[in-house]
Computed example of a mutant assay.
Amino acid sequence: MAVYAFYSAGGFAREIHAGFVHSIGMVDNGERGEVVFIDDAAESQGQVIRGSRVISYEEAKSIPGIKVNVAFADPKLRRKKVEMCAADGLETFSSFAPTSIIGDDVKIGHSAIFAHNSMVTSDAQIGDSFHCNIYAYVSHDCIVGDFVTFAPRASMNGRVKIEDDVYVGTGAIILPGKTDRYLTIGKGAIIGAGAVVTKDVEPGSVMVGAPAKPR
């Protein structure tokens, strides 16, 4: 039996759990699988949440063929855990809620999470380990790097490029780029909740307000 593990038993992992269990992603070569949580906290291990066991990372490594999706929202922590899993030879999987929408000519990397009512419209390129939370969307002709997080209702309009390790907060809006030039969000930037991004963002910046300015 295939075993799928969400690394984290926190709130976001619990949110996406049901959507994954009820999606076609639960079927691996015609064989129905088990879903578990991995949690590093000893007090959580051994519990059963939403009908799924909570196990340690060490136990996860002992399960043949286990597939892991790291569900931490923090891009830096998620990258660290994904690299650890890769070093230990663990495979990854992507989770698409039944109500998520993936449009035409969209390329998505490994280990993505698309929550309920999230969307990529068309002609977009998404990197590895992307998190698209509830009601968040990526519009046409966009490029998203690796380990990017969209919090609920984050909105990315057309012709925007987001580099690696960016966090886009709840309700933030990234306005569209131009036909001949992407609006670019630099690596490791944080876009605050409710911010409205109207121009390029420097790497590592923290942007807040409408229009968004460095904090």
Rank of each mutant, 00 (worst) to 15 (best):
Y4S: 09
G186S: 10
R14E: 08
I108A: 09
P152Q: 10
I102T: 13
F37A: 11
A195D: 03
I101P: 00
F150Q: 07
H116D: 13
V160P: 03
M156E: 07
D28I: 00
V21W: 12
F150H: 09
V138D: 02
V201C: 11
V68D: 04
V54D: 01
K213D: 00
Q125R: 13
I134C: 10
F150N: 05
D128H: 08
L90S: 10
S129F: 04
S94E: 09
R78S: 03
K107R: 13
A86L: 13
G89S: 11
V36A: 10
G10S: 05
A212Y: 08
G177N: 05
S118A: 14
R78K: 11
I190H: 08
D39V: 06
S205Q: 14
A60F: 06
R14Q: 15
V27M: 15
G188P: 04
G10K: 04
V36K: 12
D40K: 12
K187S: 11
C142G: 04
T184M: 11
I63Q: 02
I55D: 02
Y7V: 12
I174R: 00
S94W: 09
I101G: 00
A172E: 03
A9H: 05
G103T: 12
L90F: 09
L77V: 15
T170I: 15
V160C: 10
T198D: 04
D104P: 00
A86S: 11
L183R: 13
F150T: 04
D40W: 01
P98M: 13
G209L: 11
A13D: 06
Y57Q: 08
E59P: 02
P211T: 13
D39P: 04
G46V: 04
S52H: 01
V35D: 03
M84Q: 14
D105W: 08
T99I: 11
P214Y: 14
I190G: 01
G33P: 03
D28Y: 09
V54L: 01
I63C: 04
G209F: 10
V82Y: 02
P64G: 03
I143Q: 11
D165C: 09
M1N: 12
I108N: 02
G19C: 12
I49H: 01
L183C: 07
I113R: 05
D105N: 15
G188C: 07
I143K: 12
S8A: 15
V54E: 01
N133V: 05
K199V: 00
L77R: 13
K187G: 00
I134M: 13
M84H: 08
Q125M: 12
R181Q: 12
K61N: 05
S56M: 06
A86F: 05
C85P: 00
F20P: 07
R14Y: 03
A195R: 03
D141Q: 09
